[in-house]
Design a protein around this nucleic acid. Structure first.
Length: 548
RNA sequence: GCGCUUGUGGCUCAAUGGAUAGAGCGCUGGCCUCCGGAGCCAGUUGUUGGGGGUUCAAGUCCCUCCAAGCGCGCCA
């Protein structure tokens, strides 16, 4: 429908051009958006306001509006000051939408705009030095949702977790565990200054003592760091699976050190002239790409900095055939971006091929008290505790109901207290209500499972019914927009509106009545609403229960 | 000090530069002999941090000031 309208508008504009009414070049894109309020129709365009002309926008708008009236399924076209063109669609179109919802089922809302393009989305990637925190939970919820949305838009998506499994942090982790082990054996011990002080290492040390007694005292450092790393990693994997987040691929940083990939990327940079030596270290000219200073890639002692393997890793993503990369990072990485982006541009990759999304922190409150979140100091609320307190669905709802660049305040007490009146349940309740109505109808022997007759839908005449149909009509466009902008939150707002309208409708009208055609039509509408709710919730990773 | 992000009812947050700034929580008062009351209906709450500017149109863009969070290593 949208395509037909933009096509017609385009032709209209070309005619204006031919009459030499325009001063500006033809616009590349015709803006056509879903209207914000019912009195402005279903679709609206401000194109007449954007064209530069000697004529007033209202005049242009009227000319363009004329040509739209020819299109099938358009009820009427109105032009409003200062030059909006508002398009009202016919009821029949909405009946058709409902019938495609019912026909397509769980596919409704999907599209092929991604053209099977390969996309790699990397998120969480927490170091295996401690349990996942709430901040990681937010990234996990967002990344998982984005991936599902992109898949629905027809992209080939790989979800990847990059594991920093080597280096100073892991050494420190091992030393910390080793110290805790000595502590629990009542031997003198000293924690490294920058070590990890969380309770989880004490517990791990206790496990070691229970299993092996004093046997491990002679083990080398590497034993402790490997042990700590692997058992924390197992914990992370379990947390993720409890949070219903699944990764297609796990990549270890260690692999890049071994295979010489880092060296290869660096020599490529060198060939292009972006590297130099100073003070016995190897530097990258990141200032050339807008960074505040140049960065060291290889230290005086020959070891790589964090940046070097990361360049190798990203280069490797491109080599694996991905056209576009998405990274979700925490806000502590924002100063880091210019160097990474700079390096990838230096390697010849188009700047638009890399989208980096900074996911802001979540500040956790217990009532008025702010809880700190440092993994090293051991002060944090683990994701698993949050899930235990409020459940995975509620946690997801909170994470996704804010746009990613907003700081999010999460009051644990409130979330617990309000658990029975939680906004997350509002959506799920609407879905269960749909299921319950369908069940009621089935038990009464009323079936609407057979072939859908459009003629029966014409009994849907109430304003509330048409409004619900309008919402169903919007859904596919919303998913497309979400796939383009990587904004997840609008889907949640939409579902909230759909659930709200359905709840109101249910309270105002009876679905199952004595009139057969009306009942059948309303049941189909109910079923369609349920399908869209379920599809939307699935994209967000929130379950859609049939009963609550 | 510099950089990034944020500032919207009492609280937590929405609003592709568009038309009357919306939800939830809270508070007040109503609604089940009938498809689930985890719901619905009505009411209450706003100089969108302050000040300038751009635009037919600014919560949204630009400048400036104020406030909060984060970041400014040959750490990761």
């Amino acid at each position: 429908m949208k395509q037909k309208i933009t096509f017609s508008l385009k032709k209209g504009i070309e005619r204006l051009e031919a009459k030499r009414l325009l001063k500006s070049p033809l616009p590349e894109k015709i803006p056509l958006s879903l209207s914000v309020a019912p009195q402005f129709g279903d679709l609206t365009t401000n194109i007449a306001l954007q064209l530069k002309s000697e004529k007033r926008p209202m005049i242009l708008a009227n000319i363009l509006a004329e040509s739209l009236k020819e299109i099938e399924l358009i009820e009427k076209v109105e032009v409003k000051e200062p030059g909006f063109i508002n398009i009202f669609l016919k009821k029949e179109l909405f009946y058709q939408v409902l019938s495609s919802v019912l026909k397509e089922g769980e596919k409704f809302g999907s599209s092929q705009i991604g053209k099977r393009e390969k996309v790699l989305i990397e998120f969480v990637s927490a170091n295996p030095t401690g349990p996942l925190t709430i901040a990681h939970g937010r990234q996990a919820a967002l990344g998982e949702a984005m991936a599902k949305i992109l898949i629905a838009c027809g992209y080939q998506v790989t979800k990847e977790y990059y594991l920093n499994d080597v280096g100073v942090q892991i050494d420190l982790l091992g030393e910390s565990l080793s110290a805790r082990y000595q502590e629990i054996l009542d031997l003198p011990f000293s924690m490294p200054v920058d070590g990890y002080f969380g309770e989880y290492l004490k517990e791990m040390a206790k496990d070691l003592k229970d299993k092996y007694g004093k046997e491990l005292l002679s083990k080398p450092k590497k034993f402790f760091s490997d042990y700590a790393r692997d058992s924390i990693l197992n914990g992370i994997k379990k947390d993720l699976s409890d949070f219903k987040v699944h990764f297609d691929s796990w990549v270890r940083e260690g692999k890049f050190h071994q295979t010489g990939k880092i060296k290869k990327s660096l020599s490529l940079l060198e060939k292009k002239g972006y590297l130099y030596r100073k003070d016995e270290a190897l530097w990258f000219k990141s200032t050339f790409f807008g960074d505040e200073k140049d960065r060291v890639l290889q230290k005086r002692d020959g070891a790589y900095t964090y940046l070097a393997p990361d360049i190798g890793y990203h280069q490797n993503k491109y080599e694996r055939g991905y056209h576009s990369l998405i990274d979700l990072f925490g806000p502590d990485h924002d100063g880091y971006l210019p160097r990474l982006k700079g390096a990838l541009i230096a390697l010849g990759h188009p700047t638009q091929s890399l989208s980096i999304i900074i996911v802001q922190l979540t500040t956790l409150y217990q009532g008025k008290k702010k809880l700190s979140m440092s993994t090293r100091k051991g002060e944090f609320i683990a994701l698993r505790e949050l899930i235990k307190e409020v459940g995975a669905d509620v946690a997801r709802y909170f994470f996704l109901s804010r746009k990613s660049q907003s700081h999010l305040d999460f009051d644990l007490e409130l979330a617990k207290k309000n658990s029975s009146e939680n906004p997350a349940y509002y959506l799920q309740y609407a879905h269960s209500r749909v299921c319950s109505i369908m069940k009621f109808a089935r038990e009464k022997g009323i079936s609407c499972e057979r072939r859908i007759k459009l003629s029966c839908l014409s009994s849907l005449k109430e304003k509330e019914e048409l409004d619900l149909l309008r919402l169903l009509f919007r859904f596919p466009y919303l998913i497309e927009a979400s796939g383009r902008t990587l904004q997840v939150q609008p889907i949640l707002s939409f579902l909230q509106e759909l659930a709200g309208d359905f709840h109101s409708y249910y309270n105002k009208f009876r679905i199952v009545t004595k009139e057969r055609d009306l009942t059948r039509a309303r049941l189909l509408l109910t079923k369609g609403v349920g399908t869209v709710l379920r599809n939307g919730l699935r994209l967000l990773g929130i379950s859609a229960p049939e009963k609550m």
